[in-house]
Computed example of a mutant assay.
Amino acid sequence: MNILLWHVHGSWTTSFVQGPHTYLVPVTPDRGPDGLGRARTFAWPDPVREVTPGELRDADVDLVLLQRPHEAELAARWLGGRRPGRDLPAVYLEHNTPDGDVPRTRHPCADRDDLTLVHVTHFNRLFWDNGTTRTEVIEHGIVDPGHQYTGHLARAAVVVNEPVRRGRHTGTDLLPALSEAAPLDVFGMRTEGLAAHLGVPEDRCRTADLPQSELHAALAQRRLYLHPVRWTSLGLSLLEAMHLGMPVVALATTEAVEAVTPGTGTLSTRPEVLARAVRHYLREPEAAAEDGARARQAALERYGLKRFLDDWERVLTEATS
């Protein structure tokens, strides 16, 4: 099957393209948001092919995987008038929690009978108003990075992109108090100047933007994974940390309450409880390693790659039959 999809979410796409199909990924000269092409910091297999808008006009496409509202019009234009959902089978993948007037936020694909709407968490499907559109939930699957955890650095790892701009969504305002419990290493894009923004010493809040090939090893050296996010979809970085064998300390919000099971870390809506858990792991490295091992096992069982690909194969087959 030839599947057209845009490179929108590198980590998610890395798992999706491990399937048995050919994946057509648009590329433009500027490699902008609508033409990023193949990933440069993730390992993607050979069946992921870059295609230009001109090549798409006559390309053999069996299904279009939409991920952003404007892609339906863009696809029709680049595919020579073939419309996703009408002339070609289509699936819309929603990565995000709703925004705006939650929980009454209406999904852009609500009340459509020409495509399937797939959410990545049950929480997201519950909170979006999907109307009468057929909906599915396909939970994340992770390419297993292996049990790399050492935890020899008595610091907490945080992964978040643009923490200053995203602010309360990502729990950035909680980091000053949590940095008193443990020094933080914040990984992600556009994290520069975070310590100054928060008003904390730089040694209590270091930042780095590492390629995926280096990120896993860096995370696994930290004692624990801290997830202070208030409102976003289930972060793949959290699941990757669990696969690495890291214990998790997380806000009990959105889908984190499903992923972080008893014995794998601490969940709470009270920041002071999270701070106590962070201090506990810093004082007790053996307890951190034991909880991390259970976190890895839980992640493998629920968010393994095979289950993810099997779920997608079923939905893709149904959409094209």
Rank of each mutant, 00 (worst) to 15 (best):
N2D: 12
S15I: 07
L24P: 07
V25F: 08
P33K: 02
A39R: 04
A43N: 08
W44T: 06
W44K: 01
D46N: 03
R49I: 10
P53V: 05
V64W: 01
R68S: 10
P69E: 11
H70F: 15
H70R: 13
A72W: 11
L74M: 14
L79H: 04
G81Y: 15
G81L: 14
R82W: 11
R83D: 13
D87N: 01
D87P: 08
D99M: 09
G100Y: 13
P108L: 07
C109V: 14
L115E: 07
T116W: 12
L117I: 09
H119N: 07
V120I: 15
H122R: 15
H122I: 11
F123I: 13
N124H: 10
T133I: 04
R134Y: 12
E136Y: 11
V137G: 04
E139N: 03
D144L: 00
H147E: 15
H147F: 15
T150M: 13
H152W: 15
L153D: 14
L153I: 14
L153K: 01
N161Y: 08
N161W: 06
R168Q: 14
D173P: 03
L175S: 02
P176L: 03
L178V: 07
S179D: 12
A181K: 05
D185H: 08
V186Y: 02
V186G: 04
F187D: 04
F187Q: 02
G199M: 13
P201I: 09
A208W: 10
Q212F: 14
R222T: 12
R223N: 10
Y225T: 05
S233R: 03
L236S: 01
E240L: 02
H243Q: 14
V248F: 10
A252I: 01
A259E: 06
V260M: 09
P262E: 02
T266S: 03
T266A: 05
T269I: 15
R270T: 14
P271H: 08
L274S: 01
R276P: 12
H280E: 12
A299P: 10
R302I: 13
L305R: 01
K306M: 14
F308M: 04
F308S: 01
E318I: 13
